[in-house]
């Protein structure tokens, strides 16, 4: 049954004698088709298929919503890793903020929050971040929403650069990143809530240009109520 033996038989009529796949003796003098053996299907394959069929039946019975055309939410909570508990869990703004900061802010302000001297202003102890002096929480939110450009003074040092607008972030993300910045690296500002961000976002007319310091200074200072008079210690 060794097909290579056939090579020796010199069948002059064989048109495939010289037809080779690749510069090698022909391998194709085998008959056109073979029968097969009637070996049984392996037992383990039958077992697997029966288990799978059984599982399929159960799955369809449980998760088919009664085969109705208007049921979309089959009871799949077990699969999705507890969808219910996820909705109920309270959101820690600092955790959200830490992520947003790592994603978007570290490039300029650095992981230490110290910025780069002469180029990017620091956030640590910054009167901008902590809403001291003429700065208010509203300025901070506006700043994130539409960016900042031109000469500014931070901790008595001049900077002249541009910050990108981040209005594509959600209220929760902005509140998170502000809360994070104001409570990290020894800062002890109060948290900012998503509702406050939403309020400022709604009351600020959309703009395409970034703010300048003088523009912001012209806007009256506003603090996030509840924490303005009574600053809470940083949550560590």
């Amino acid at each position: 049954m060794n097909p290579l033996n056939d090579l020796n038989s010199s069948d002059a009529l064989n048109p495939e004698r010289d037809l080779v796949e690749i510069n090698r003796p022909p391998l194709s003098v085998n008959p056109e088709k073979y029968g097969g053996f009637f070996r049984p299907i392996p037992l383990w394959l039958i077992a697997i298929s029966m288990v799978l069929f059984f599982w399929a039946g159960l799955y369809l019975a449980y998760y088919s919503g009664g085969f109705k055309s208007n049921v979309y939410n089959a009871e799949l909570v077990a699969w999705s890793g507890g969808g219910g508990s996820r909705a109920a869990a309270p959101i820690d703004l600092r955790v959200v903020g830490k992520k947003v900061f790592a994603q978007n802010c570290v490039v300029c302000h650095q992981e230490t929050g110290l910025g780069i001297a002469g180029q990017y202003p620091p956030l640590v102890g910054s009167e901008w971040a902590l809403s001291q002096g003429w700065h208010g929480d509203n300025h901070l939110v506006k700043n994130i929403l539409y960016g900042l450009q031109g000469p500014i003074i931070v901790k008595n040092m001049p900077y002249n650069n541009a910050m990108a607008p981040w209005n594509q972030l959600t209220d929760q993300q902005i509140a998170g990143v502000l809360t994070y910045v104001r409570s990290e690296w020894g800062n002890n500002g109060s948290p900012i809530s998503p509702e406050f961000v939403a309020k400022i976002r709604a009351s600020t007319p959309p703009r395409t240009e970034a703010w300048t310091m003088s523009e912001l200074q012209a806007i009256p200072r506003e603090l996030y109520s509840g924490a303005a008079t009574n600053p809470t210690p940083p949550a560590k």
């Binding site: 049954m1 085998n30 056109e32 088709k33 029968g35 053996f37 009637f38 299907i41």
Partner: peptide
Amino acid sequence: YLIPKITGVKIYSYYLALF
């Protein structure tokens, strides 16, 4: 087609093929 044709080996199991 190709495996039996080139190697000269018959189909291992028809039942498996049917399945």
